[in-house]
Each structure stands twice: as C-alpha cells, then as structure tokens.
Design a protein around this nucleic acid. Sequence first.
DNA 1: TCTCTATTATAGTGATCGGTCTACATATTA
DNA 2: TAATATGTAGACCGATCACTATAATAGAGA
Lengths: 193, 193
Amino acid sequence: MNIRTDSREKMIKAASRLFQMQGYHATGLNEILKKSDAPKGSLYYYFPKGKEELALAAIGLASDIIQSKIRASLSVYADPILAIQNVIRDMEKAIKKDGKLENVSLSLLSLETYLSSETLREACRKSFIELEKIYAEKLRESGIFPQSAQNLGMVIQAMIEGAITISITKKDTTTLAAVAEQIAVIIKPYKTT
Amino acid sequence: MNIRTDSREKMIKAASRLFQMQGYHATGLNEILKKSDAPKGSLYYYFPKGKEELALAAIGLASDIIQSKIRASLSVYADPILAIQNVIRDMEKAIKKDGKLENVSLSLLSLETYLSSETLREACRKSFIELEKIYAEKLRESGIFPQSAQNLGMVIQAMIEGAITISITKKDTTTLAAVAEQIAVIIKPYKTT
DNA sequence: TCTCTATTATAGTGATCGGTCTACATATTA
DNA sequence: TAATATGTAGACCGATCACTATAATAGAGA
C-alpha cells in the first residue's frame, strides 16, 4: 500500500489551513502545493475531481479539529456556563495570537460556497449542526430539557460564529468577550439546579 | 456638465449585489460589467485603482442600504425587544425569498478581505460598528444604561450576523428564529421600565 | 462650426487560474 | 527477475483574471 507517502495528508492540511484563513477562491492550487511541498502530479492522483474534492477533505479535517478543540475546552468545567465561556476564551486566544482564522470557524468557507457548490455547502452545514449538538449536549447533561437545550445550542453557536467574524474584522475581541458574558444570561433561566 | 450618465451608479449597484452574494474573489470584473450593462471602457475611468476601489464603493452602498433597512424595521415598534425581533423577521423573509445574501450582511466580504485588503476590511469594520450603534441607540431610548446598551448592541449584532451565516448555509432560517426568541431574554434583565 | 473635455470602445497585456497529459521512478508481488 | 501497481515529475493547455493603452465618440461652450 502507500508507505512513505504522506503527500495526501500534507495537501489536506495545507489546504485546510489556507482555505480557512483566506478562503476558497483566494487560495490557488499552486499555493497549496507550494505550502505542502507536495508535487502537482499527486494532487490529481489523490483528488481526481480537483479543487472541490480537496476542499471537501480540507473541510472535513477542519471540522474535526474544531470539534475536538471545543470538546476539550468544554470538558474543563462541569457547569455549562463556565464551560462555554471557557470555549469562547480559548477562541479569543486563538484569534489574538495572529489575527487569522485557524481552526475556529468555517463561516468564510461556508459563505463562499453556499451558492456555488452544493457539496461544500453540505459539508459546512453538517459541521455547523455538529457544533450545535455539542453545545446542546453539554446543556442537557446539566439537566436542561432537551428541547430547550437544542434551541440554546443553536443560539450559542450563532453568537459565537458571529462574534468571531466581527472580532476578526475589527482586530479586537471585545465582541467575543461580550458574548461570553451574555452566555450566562441566556442559560440561567433554563437551569433547573 | 456631462449628460445623464449613470454608468458609475450602475456598476456600483451590480458590484454591491454580486460581491455580497457570491463574494469578492468569486466575482469577476467582466461579470459586473455584464450585469450592469455599463460600458466596458468606463470601469477604469471611474475607478482608476480597479477592483478594490469599486469594491469600496460597493461596500459603502451595501452598508447604507442595510442600515436603512434595519432602521426602518426597528422604527415599527417602540419596545426594543419587539423592534429587534421585527428586524430579524424581516431578514428571515429576505433570506427565504431566494436563499441569497442580498442587503442583509457583509460577513462574507468582511471575512474575504480581512487579510488581503486593509481598505476593505476597514470599510466592513465601520459598517459593523454602525450597526452595533443602531441597536444600542434603540436600547438607550428605552431607558437602558448607555454602557449596557453598547454591550448589548454588540452581542445582538453578533447573534444576528452569525444566525444569518448559519441560516444561509442550512437553507433554513430556524437559527434566526431561535435568536429572535432569545433577544427577549437578554434584553429583559436590563429593562428599567 | 470648431475646440475641448468627458466618456466609451476595443484590442491586447502578462500573469495566473484549474486541470490534463505523458513519461518516469519506485515499491510490491509473482 | 519480471510484471504490476502506486505514486511523482513537471511541461503544457485553454480560459480567465485584473488591468492598460490608445483611439474614437459625443456633447458643451466659444
């Protein structure tokens, strides 16, 4: 089988990074190849359908990483309010680090592809839903009714996604911080404990 | 002066629409020219610095339209909760209409340009801040303390922006509706009346 | 009518885009 | 060793990108 060949992995990693940061259309195949120092011949060997197929794999990887980061941040606290605030704090750190979108949000890719590629839109959609579920589950664990938890999960996911977009644009994470504060307000009314 | 020449206006309008819908990098100059049936030679006459300069004007127009639409929706109700919920309802309608981003959000342009163009990033930033202020003002009018109003304005703006992104991606405005519901929850604690 | 300026037309620039192709190297298996 | 997958090399393709150069056109003022 494929032994010492990590070209595929390297291409997906580089593509994931670049697509998230600067977007799908702003990222050329050549740039991906260069950053991953993989040969061009290999691209169409592993991804015969080209850029879109590579992007699908890249979105998959990004989604997995984002999910696991959020799960890790959530698990630090049992209380859902503290836990979600911790997630947001970690995102603030990631954004402050160098002001780039890396493993925090698929919003850019999602908005770039919702019209032009059903395949990629669907991948982003699934990722969004997965994140909602992660938040909802944390809320359910603390005794919030499933229906309320699901609704709150959606809202929390929207707040965070929007705050990331705005914080990146402003080069200032105040909006993320403000959202973190309000997390407490929207969850408290549903807490049974 | 010159005879009624609306070529400039037509180009900005078409550019604004296309950039918002499909993004900056996905929209070619030729497409803009075609859709605006403006004379091909006129683009670099009115926008000597090219695409970026046109985009700046397009963002300005989009921002103005979005602001005035939000102001109009807000003014229907005196109560800030009802007013903001009305804004969101109107956005749901706009998105349901044909599933495209048109005069509702600059998130796509913002995320596409935050790294590559300081000029366009700045234009998006200003637009975001303006929207926060609009919401904050509505809250202040109903007696909420300025500091709280400003914070809530930021959060509301983030919630809406995020919910738009997610709703567009899912082709389903449930998230926007869920956010509208929670608007009441986050504003109530600050209401003095 | 003639001139001047504002606007438009069009051909063409080099660069880069995503994608294709064939030749070749290497590794595994028979 | 021979045969066969598996993967790499990179030149090449037409199309399109943003952009430029220069000439033609038209209207306004004299």
